[in-house]
Design a protein around this nucleic acid. Structure first.
Lengths: 181, 181
DNA sequence: ACCTGAACACCGTTCAAGT
DNA sequence: ACCTGAACACCGTTCAAGT
């Protein structure tokens, strides 16, 4: 049994710490303890804490965008929205996102979040356009939809759980309601 | 000129640091430098960092709930919603909220955020009820509205500025749309 | 009553030295 | 090639000592 550690092990530990205790928990010394090495050894694999954080976030980024979109691409657009909303409103989903939205001050975090939100937004806008909304209207609805997602994630944490009965259904209905003009 | 510092001065400095650089910037040593005293003196006024943070957040809490609600109470409910949305979507507004949504892991932060969100939610629900929506429907719309607010704040930061043209108007229209059944 | 200065703990970072 | 151990910087916290 070689005790040889690599980038992958540090990233995996960091990803877990991130989901469990937030960005601050992506800390070298605690992770080193967890991995059973001294913190000095960290610097053989990474330049500094920011480098570890970046690798960790890029890993999350892949999971949160490409992999999700891949599973949806075969479905019709309205079902994509329902599917996204329902899984999004599952409190267990995407715990890392919240941990991140946190540390927007950190430039590493901020860059990655920017890309992820942008990609999600583009995807949602496409859905609304395929449903027949003209581009500017689709853009606004996409924005509102993503805001509702992001906001709901936060509120779930802040308020400690419970979303109202029928919330996901209500959201999609509201977000899809046809124009009154 | 007495250089006598009190709780108020520390809280004011902390509030500024919070808006400018986030919760992490509510740090004793930097604030002490800013105030021209040694960090040791901090402990005459406060038990520890958490105590300062709490006082600081309670000050923000007052500004963010009571004072806002007071200015709206005279208006009719639909105008309250418009007024809230328009001012909410001003990127300069409520910079502290974002700094906070961040540190939800911190139990001090988490308590205060919980109360603030709860109060905002109750207030919004009342607006929707006064507009004629039955309570459960009003609850869902209130939740979606607050989520849209919270989410939009985040997205504005994450995406660096621009909300789509006509976004605030669209939000209110969408959130107020009459039921299709 | 209010502040300083020195001490210690914790985490980030560096680096010479070990295997 | 990969890791240890000791060193130093930074911030939180304590406390004896100053005014």
């Amino acid at each position: 049994m070689r005790k040889s550690l690599g980038e992958a092990e540090w990233v995996a530990a960091a990803l877990a710490a991130l989901a469990e205790e937030g960005v601050a928990a992506v800390a070298i010394e605690p992770l080193a303890r967890r991995l059973g090495v001294t913190k000095g050894s960290f610097y053989w694999h990474f330049k500094d804490r920011a480098a570890l954080l970046l690798k960790t976030l890029e890993e999350w980024e892949r999971q949160a965008t490409l992999e999700v979109i891949a599973t949806l691409d075969s479905k019709p657009p309205q079902e994509r929205l329902y599917s996204l909303m329902y899984s999004a409103f599952n409190p267990a989903a995407d715990r890392q996102y919240l941990a991140l939205a946190s540390s927007i001050t950190d430039p590493v975090v901020s860059d990655v979040l920017h890309r992820v939100s942008k990609r999600r937004l583009e995807y949602l806008q496409l859905c609304f356009q395929e449903l027949g909304f003209p581009a500017p209207e689709a853009a606004r609805r996409a924005h509102l939809t993503l805001a509702a997602y992001v906001g709901s994630k936060h509120l779930t944490l802040e308020l400690g759980g419970g979303l109202p009965e029928g919330y996901a259904r209500q959201c999609v209905d509201t977000l899809l309601h046809t124009l009154p003009y």
